[in-house]
Design a protein around this nucleic acid. Structure first.
Length: 305
DNA sequence: CACTTGACCTGTCCGC
DNA sequence: TGCGGACAGGTCAAGT
């Protein structure tokens, strides 16, 4: 999925595009992907206006003036793409280009007749606004979800109760970062970084990139990483997350922002998806191995166990 | 509890 | 060109 920088990029786009818009209709066909009591949809979603868009870890929250919120997780292949009523209806990146709208969403959507447009066969939900614009929730693999909840309940869902601190938070110091690994001595450092209850928002791309920056082999046990190296890892992690936000995130295959645009971080990536290429620091050939059940990229000369 | 593995899905790519 | 298997950015539940 979208990791922290991608979700943050989507959040910023939505904040610019949908605040104040009034929802007049919602259409969805994947019950697991859209969880809401039927009465809540009629009472608290339809007719409400969007008040704010926030993010916690990799979860987006769209707050409504009905005091309900849409809580959204994009997981691996989710997209939230806004298509305005007045301007071009073409997705600028060409992402999600597909075979045209499925039957279930047929019925006069303004994009229906155009190619490379939404809805497409990955579309799981469509929100329609009063001004004729639309927000599409697309998710090829159907891992993602949207929940409609009272705003006061959002922080009570299981994920929110256990998720760790935001790595880019103003009060998140190197010391706090080091403390977060307490009790995880026997886990590999990569598994610990990916564990959302340790640190929020880190996924496979930025774990590999940060570990390369800190010269740590991803399979190193936490107890074998010196505190000084953990502090370096803290710096490297914040560096790659900030850089990626600056570049609009990473697009490997599916990810696009709220306007359908790809992110360019992978042009700047040092190891992720660069197996077989030269390490930009030492020239050794980047390897791809498996750690914590995930594809893992590293420099075999500089990141040793 | 800490830690690992399989499951959830669809699509694509790679080797035979 | 077809087919099986591995793999893909995330998280849970269930296992050891």
């Amino acid at each position: 999925m979208p990791e922290l920088p991608e979700v943050e990029t989507v959040r910023r786009g939505l904040e610019r595009l949908v605040i104040g818009l009034k929802i007049i209709q919602v259409d969805f066909d994947w019950p697991k992907g859209f969880q809401a009591a039927p009465n809540d949809i009629e009472q608290f979603l339809i007719g409400s206006r969007i008040k704010a868009v926030s993010r916690r870890a990799k979860v987006l929250m769209i707050d409504l003036d009905s005091d309900y919120s849409l809580v959204i997780h994009l997981k691996m292949t989710g997209q939230l793409v806004f298509v305005g009523a007045a301007h071009s209806r073409t997705l600028s990146s060409g992402a999600s280009v597909d075979t045209g709208p499925p039957e279930r969403f047929a019925g006069g959507h303004p994009n229906d007749s155009l190619t490379g447009q939404l809805p497409d066969k990955s579309t799981r939900a469509v929100f329609e606004f009063e001004d004729g614009s639309h927000l599409f929730f697309n998710d090829q693999r159907k891992f993602g979800w949207i929940k409609l909840l009272p705003t006061t309940e959002v922080m009570n869902i299981d994920f929110m109760k256990k998720v760790g601190p935001e790595p880019l938070g103003a009060d998140f110091t190197a010391e706090r970062f080091v403390e977060r690994f307490t009790g995880r001595a026997n886990a590999t450092i990569k598994a610990a970084l990916l564990d959302q209850s340790v640190i929020a928002g880190v996924g496979n791309i930025y774990a590999d990139e940060a570990l390369w920056g800190a010269l740590i082999h991803p399979a190193t046990r936490v107890k074998d990483v010196p505190k000084s190296k953990l502090k370096t890892l803290y710096d490297e992690l914040r560096y790659v997350l900030n850089l990626s936000i600056d570049k609009g995130g990473s697009t490997d295959r599916n990810y696009v922002d709220a306007e359908g645009k790809k992110g360019s971080y992978l042009e700047f990536a040092r190891v992720f998806r660069r197996e077989g290429q030269d390490c930009p620091r030492c020239g050794a050939i980047i390897e791809k191995i498996r750690v914590a059940g995930r594809g893992t990229h590293l420099c075999p000369e500089e990141q040793k166990l």
